[in-house]
C-alpha cells in the first residue's frame, strides 16, 4: 500500500519540501504520493504531514480561515506523524514568544510540550549554516540551514531532544511529532526527510 505524505501549502517553501520528500520516498524504495495540501478534505486522507518553513503568523491565521488547522489537530491527535520545520515547529508548539517582542498572540496547534523562542538567533544577517548532529536518530552529521530560526528553551518530560547547537535546543521529538529549527529541504541531504517518511510508513502498518 502506498503512503500519502502531504505538505501544508498555505504559505512558505512548499515546493522544496515536495521535492525533498519525493527524493526521500524514491531513495527508500517506497511507494508513496507526495502532495501539497490546503483543504480539510485533502488533509483527511494523509498518513503524514510536513508543515514547511514560512511565516508562522501568516500560516496560523490563514489555516484558521478554511478550518484546516482544526483538521490537522484531529489527525495529529489520532497519531498521524508530523514534521514541523522552523515556522512549522512554532505552529506545533504549546507556547511561543519572540526574543524581542515577547509573548505573541498567534494561532498554534499546541502539541509539542516545549517553550519556544522565535527569532532566537537574531535577524536575517545572523542567519547561519553550520554542521549539527542528530545521533539519537542515526544522523551523525547534518548541514543545518538556520533562517531567522527559533530555538527551544525548555522541554517537558515527554520530549526527546534530538539536537543542540551552542547549548540551544534545535530539534525535538515527542511521539510521532518532530520539530526542527533548521531547513533540511534547502540542502541536498535527504536523511531527515527519509527518517520522517520511514516514521510515516511504519506508523501506518
Amino acid at each position: 500500500m502506498s503512503i500519502n505524505v502531504g505538505i501544508l501549502a498555505i504559505q512558505g517553501d512548499v515546493q522544496e519540501n515536495i521535492d525533498a520528500t519525493k527524493r526521500a520516498v524514491t531513495e527508500l524504495g517506497l511507494d508513496g504520493n507526495v502532495i501539497p495540501v490546503k483543504t480539510p478534505e485533502e488533509i483527511s486522507n494523509l498518513d503524514g504531514l510536513i508543515i514547511p518553513g514560512g511565516e508562522s503568523t501568516t500560516i496560523g491565521h490563514l489555516s484558521l480561515v478554511n478550518s484546516s488547522l482544526k483538521k490537522i489537530k484531529e489527525k495529529i491527535e489520532k497519531g498521524m506523524p508530523v514534521l514541523g520545520i522552523c515556522a512549522g515547529m512554532i505552529m506545533l508548539s504549546k507556547t511561543a514568544s519572540d526574543r524581542i517582542i515577547g509573548k505573541t498572540d498567534q494561532p498554534l496547534l499546541e502539541f509539542l510540550d516545549i517553550k519556544l523562542e522565535r527569532n532566537s538567533f537574531g535577524r536575517q544577517r545572523d542567519s547561519f549554516q553550520a554542521d549539527i548532529s542528530m545521533d539519537s536518530i542515526d544522523i551523525p552529521v547534518f548541514n543545518g540551514v538556520f533562517i531567522r530560526a527559533p530555538s527551544v528553551s525548555d522541554v517537558g518530560s515527554g520530549v526527546q531532544v534530538l539536537s543542540k547547537f551552542n547549548d540551544k535546543i534545535i530539534a525535538v521529538k515527542q511521539g510521532n511529532i518532530i520539530g526542527t529549527a533548521f531547513h533540511p529541504e534547502l540542502t541536498q541531504d535527504t536523511s531527515l526527510h527519509k527518517y520522517f517518511v520511514n516514521l510515516v510508513s511504519t506508523s501506518r502498518n
Binding site: A9, R125, F128, F165
Partner: peptide
C-alpha cells in the same frame, strides 16, 4: 562545533523562499 557561515546564497535565497505565497 566548526565553521558557522553567514550570508551564503543558500541563506539569502532561502530567506526569500520563506516568503513565497
Amino acid at each position: 562545533s566548526g565553521d558557522v557561515l553567514h550570508g551564503t546564497s543558500t541563506l539569502k535565497r532561502g530567506f526569500a523562499h520563506m516568503l513565497k505565497n
